[in-house]
Amino acid sequence: MSKLAISLTVNGVQRQALVEPNQTLTSLLRDELNLTGTKHGCGVGDCGCCTVILDGETVNSCLVLAVQAQGREVMTIEGLAQGIRLHPLQQAFVDHGAIQCGFCTPGMILSAKALLDRTPQPTRAEITKGLSGNLCRCTGYEKIVEAVQDAAGKMERG
């Protein structure tokens, strides 16, 4: 089957792409659009490294076909910072030591972003539930939770 033409919004920018039917959204972002902040961890939805926000909801982009993003809005980790100014969540992750190897970080931050968009002042239980699809082997999660709490506070105060 020939390639399919799709158009989608990525980080606020309208993009066109020709994709194979069996191409994943991860591959579209990484291989075609060169947005390599989205990571390959397991390919089967077990780890959350490839998390992106699709129309406001987090998804494992390894389990979304690129063609399914037709007409939709995707936010990747590259869409958060304003120029060189980090998004408050990114800054909080940096400040709290919530990043070690960093491989889970883009997905983790996007899960946190989707959580705060929906629940600006989450409880600890809401944070852990919101991040429960993102595995991290380095941090033990404690500093990640602290970072999200801190960012929530700062974002609320504006």
């Binding site: 390599t36 902040g37 990571k39 390959h40 990747t76 980790i77 590259e78 980090l86 960093g102 491989f103």
Partner: peptide, 16 residues
Amino acid sequence: RKDAPNKSTGKAQYIE
């Protein structure tokens, strides 16, 4: 950490 900002934005490069 020195590497944290780039890791937070997806700029840090791994082999892939």
